[in-house]
Design a protein around this nucleic acid. Sequence first.
DNA 1: CTCCGAATTTTGACAAAGTCCAAAACTGGA
DNA 2: TCCAGTTTTGGACTTTGTCAAAATTCGGAG
Lengths: 153, 153
Amino acid sequence: MRDPEATLRQHQLPVTAQRLAVLRAVSRHPHATADAVAESAREEIGAISRQSVYNVLNVLTEKGIIRRIQPADSPARYEDRVGDNHHHLVCRACGQTEDVCCAVGGAPCLEAHDDHGFKIDEAEVIYWGLCPACQRAGAHASPAHPLSPHHHD
Amino acid sequence: MRDPEATLRQHQLPVTAQRLAVLRAVSRHPHATADAVAESAREEIGAISRQSVYNVLNVLTEKGIIRRIQPADSPARYEDRVGDNHHHLVCRACGQTEDVCCAVGGAPCLEAHDDHGFKIDEAEVIYWGLCPACQRAGAHASPAHPLSPHHHD
DNA sequence: CTCCGAATTTTGACAAAGTCCAAAACTGGA
DNA sequence: TCCAGTTTTGGACTTTGTCAAAATTCGGAG
């Protein structure tokens, strides 16, 4: 993120130490959880309440300054990168999260065959698997994540 | 589900009233939450503990007899229909959930452009929008779901 | 520079969804 | 029918997040 302070002003948000710290924390640690953001913010400004972290993350999300993702079996994660419709790759074993561009194009799967009359505004894609480290560690694709809807081992 | 009892036996699971009731509840109410399953099961057998509902849902999920889906801002939901790699359509306002076939084909987005070295075993797709009822009710695509990563209004 | 009202932060209680654990009850093979 | 092993139960506990009221801070006006 270029200039956190300017970004806040652009969105009519009063600039506070807490908001700057949280915004920078998200910027420094993409896909961090609220807890991780809190830790990182504390390193920067000494102290910030848990509630404030949530308050800030919520406003920033509402304003579209950051984006919240909520993969199964994980607390919400936040990221800096907004407005480019990218998706995510999540490790079933350790939760490591990576960004991936749209697989097919601009807004790939954004059209379901039968929309059941819904007015669709987003197609969210999450790829599940094992990150390189967990593959080497011999993790199997289940312990951390008991789903695995349709794997054909 | 054809024969719940046989299904349990096929998977070496002792047949109990609780397991049958839970399995049938999921069968009758696709996309039900654990709570809803518990209610439905109680109607059938009078009583079942909360823990048992979770126990049963967990074994059934592990065995692949049912599938668990965990959309953002919703407790986990369970469904009968497994092994066909279908996706979901969720109403941001009321949470109503519908099944949708793979948008592009067999396993559509199952290949990310850059897999970051991950061993991918599933591509999960969730379409977010407003169901017909909530559209008529004038719901806007935000109250229930403060995310909306990349809409261009 | 100081003051004030509105917005933000803090503190602490609370809520939802699940899990952990030990005790009691049950399943199903011998 | 009996027994060992599995399930079920009840209750405490954890995690992630929200609510509400009081204290503090921001930032424009004077």
